[in-house]
Amino acid sequence: MTRTMTAYFDSVQEAERAAYDLAQRVPGVRGEVFDARTDSQRLEALALPSEDAETLHEGFRRGGGVVHAEVPDGRFEELAAALEASGAVDLEQREAEWRKSGWTGARRGDDVAPLPTGGATAARGSATTGAAGAAEAQRLGPATDEASIPIVEERLRVGKREAGHGRVRIRSYVVETPVQEQVTLREEHVQVERRPVDRAVSGTEAGFQERVVEATERAEEAVVSKEARVKEEVSLKKTAEERTETVRDTVRRTEVEVEDGRSAGAAKRNGVAGTAKEPGRDI
């Protein structure tokens, strides 16, 4: 018996990382990542309860992602622990937080359309019967009937896309700073003095003539002028470099196991020899 589990993560990046970690922690189990970009036909395979649909719509709108995996019943707890360790969150708790912040989506118990875009809560599981979800065996009819099983293998394709990592902007503005300087200024002053004298007029002195004597006062004043000078330059320059990054993921392939229940003699008569089970052999 196998069981399926879907776990919700707050971001698609966390979900992708959890799927990669799951392959390392639980060998043989592969997790698929679903998000808002996933094709609706793929999402129908999740078969989730309709009451979670509206909440999961909102989770995908907020950038969340889902990891979906199938695991044998005996390893279910191991899978749940690995997903929780990778950061899986409780979707019901997230729903309560979203409603507190103003989200008014449909509540549990309301009629909600089936989920066309995936999502799930952490540690949600369901059981399915069969030895790995095996389909009903196809039986051949007349001797001319023929049937085949395709061997499918996934191949990893890595592309590139440009993403913004922030912006650098230079803006200039004017700042006024008070400054002061000291300067020595010279001033001239004219003083008028009168002093008593008692002597005879000399021959060089004009006794009774009109005379005018003038003196001009002068003083230095501070004159301020400013000169703008460039003392530094700030510029933006873009450079480019290349780096090699290792992208890790898991790919699936189909293997075929042949079960030959005929006796050894019958097998030899039909040109078949070897063990009863031959994994990986095309038929």
Rank of each mutant, 00 (worst) to 15 (best):
K268Q: 15
E214R: 14
E51N: 14
K100Q: 13
T275K: 13
M1T: 13
E245A: 12
Q209I: 08
A264T: 14
V175L: 09
R62S: 04
R167P: 04
G130A: 03
G203E: 11
G130D: 04
V29Y: 00
R269N: 09
A264F: 11
R211H: 08
R75F: 02
G265N: 12
E255G: 08
R211G: 09
Y8W: 11
R139C: 06
T204P: 03
W103P: 00
G87V: 00
R248S: 07
E220M: 05
G105R: 01
R269I: 09
G65S: 01
Q24I: 03
R75W: 02
L156I: 07
R253W: 08
F34D: 01
A120D: 07
Y8K: 02
S50F: 11
D198H: 12
K226Y: 13
R229Y: 01
R25V: 00
G159N: 07
G125I: 05
E78S: 06
G74E: 14
V230M: 09
R248E: 08
L185Y: 07
V223P: 01
G207L: 08
P116Q: 13
G280T: 02
A267F: 03
E154H: 06
G64W: 02
L236H: 04
L43E: 15
I151A: 15
V258Y: 07
G166N: 04
G118N: 02
D35G: 00
R30N: 04
E92N: 08
Y8D: 06
R253C: 04
R262F: 01
Q41W: 14
E77H: 08
A200L: 14
R107A: 12
L83K: 01
V272C: 10
T121Y: 02
I283N: 11
G59T: 06
G203V: 05
G261P: 02
P49M: 02
P114F: 10
R262A: 06
D10F: 03
E257G: 12
R124M: 12
P279M: 06
Y173F: 11
S235R: 15
G159E: 09
D39M: 06
E78T: 05
D39L: 07
D21Q: 11
K160Y: 09
I149D: 05
V256E: 08
S148E: 12
R262S: 05
Q180R: 15
Y8H: 13
R248G: 02
E245P: 00
G159F: 05
G261C: 03
T250Y: 05
A7N: 06
V190W: 04
T4K: 10
K238Q: 14
E187M: 07
G159P: 03
V179E: 06
D73P: 01
S235G: 10
R3H: 13
V67Q: 00
Q191I: 07
T275S: 13
R30L: 08
V179P: 00
L48V: 11
R248K: 12
T38N: 02
L115F: 10
Q13F: 06
R269Q: 12
R155W: 06
A19I: 00
R167S: 14
R243Y: 05
A200D: 13
E70A: 15
T38R: 03
R211P: 03
